[in-house]
Write a protein that binds this DNA or RNA. Structure first.
Lengths: 243, 243
DNA sequence: AGACTTTTAAATGTCTGACAAATGATTGTT
DNA sequence: AACAATCATTTGTCAGACATTTAAAAGTCT
């Protein structure tokens, strides 16, 4: 592991990069302890603050964790699905909000991906996940629910559907697509009639999943996508007309 | 934006978190300049190195960029699809390698997601993307290709297929699923016969895409998934038998 | 000998103050 | 007016110090 002191790039960035490579390539394995900050400073011929900046960069990506005390130090962190999930959601949300991604584009991606999970979920979902879907459908029918709460319940419903595939990689990937849509969905006001039609489609999907009918679940999702896009188009059209 | 000096969490982590929140919630907008390090230090009542550690954390997530000089400073960065794509690949790769995800699980997720893109790609792909697919198929048929090069070409083929959907959100999401599989695929040795059968399926998919036949493309992917899993199972069985 | 307390050492977390280097703005000169 | 020199601001880096946490080692008492 070497760095180039004459490179235009920051030393801390170079050091972080070198250590990251060592982790990705497997030269540093999970739970292995890195040298202490003082040792790293000497090894790279830089000062301790510079090493620390590099370590903080890695910590921000959950690649390492640090512990204080006598047997402390920086350890290679096992990247958990949970950690990756959170990063994924943050990144996806910012990506959508900062890049003027149209509602349709995001919606299309989300439902395309969800349809990929549906057949698996229909055959594998646990009773618990089905119950969650039913419970969220019930909640969505409650009067007096705020739009935010309705959206949150919607996310929970779809998350249960996705998790039903019992494939952690799929769940992780979908997390971004589904949750990142929430801020966009929150821009929409749902009338009672809108909610009713969404609810019907949700029930249809839940029924399909219960019957282990993947094709029907896919059909339900397709209908839901169409409904969602129509709904959003109406809202945006009304807003545009108001000006 | 306030922090709690008595919290058990690192000050730099708290500061990073506070600024991150400000960005995510839109209090800080793209290209807005943050206060200088000295000003932030005073604002949060901490020293400059502590502020710097916080800023490096944010820089590691591509949330800010820094510039030296008189009019320099830290600026809120527009998270590009390119940046997000790279992060996604790194995260997904580590996730798979560190969590003992089985080949089958990863494979299933990858092909399920790819099938989600196929119908869109069949109707929208540009001539350029179709040409890329054909070119990669040609390359895969060249004799003397190393297994690594074959895998790399495979990734390029599938990436062209995914990009054909012309949905940047989908492309970004799929990046992780497809590229993260490469290290797993590299563990496999492809015989000439294996390559031939993969090549045939790739051609089948390309033909379907050319004919705007989404269903046929999905069928091709399904067959390819089956073939890939069978291939991997054989390799693993042979390795297990050797011991 | 064993259980408890104290000490110690090692490591990260934080601070202070300083200098280097980059860079745009300002000023001065021709 | 064009160009060059200077300056001020800001990030990048360094050295050294102290605070805090933590576990192990040493010591002490029953």
């Amino acid at each position: 592991m070497k760095i180039d002191p004459n490179s235009p790039a920051d030393l801390s960035a170079q050091i972080a990069s070198a250590i990251r490579d060592a982790i990705v390539t497997g030269h540093l394995i999970v739970d292995e302890r890195l040298p202490s900050e003082a040792e790293l400073a000497e090894q790279f011929q830089v000062s301790r603050p510079t090493v620390r900046e590099a370590l903080k960069r890695l910590a921000a990506q959950s690649l390492i964790r640090t512990q204080r005390g006598a047997t402390g130090g920086a350890f290679v962190n096992r990247l958990s699905f949970e950690d990756a999930y959170c990063q994924q959601v943050t990144t996806s949300t910012l990506l959508l909000s900062m890049n003027a991604v149209s509602f349709d584009t995001a919606c299309e991606a989300r439902y395309a991906l969800e349809r990929a999970c549906a057949p698996l979920s229909a055959t594998r979902r646990s009773a618990d996940q089905l119950a969650t879907m039913r419970a969220e459908i019930f909640r969505q029918g409650q009067p007096g629910l705020t739009d935010e709460a309705f959206c949150a319940s919607d996310v929970a419903f779809h998350r249960a559907l996705v998790d039903g595939a019992h494939n952690p990689v799929l769940s992780y990937q979908l997390a971004g697509a589904v949750e990142a849509m929430q801020p966009l969905m929150n821009m929409i006001t749902f009338t009672a009639r809108d909610r009713q039609s969404i609810l019907v489609l949700h029930s249809q999907i839940a029924d399909a999943v219960e019957a282990c009918d993947g094709a029907a679940a896919v059909a339900g999702l397709t209908a839901l996508e169409e409904e969602t896009r129509k709904l959003a188009a109406d809202v945006f059209a009304r807003r545009a007309a108001k000006r």
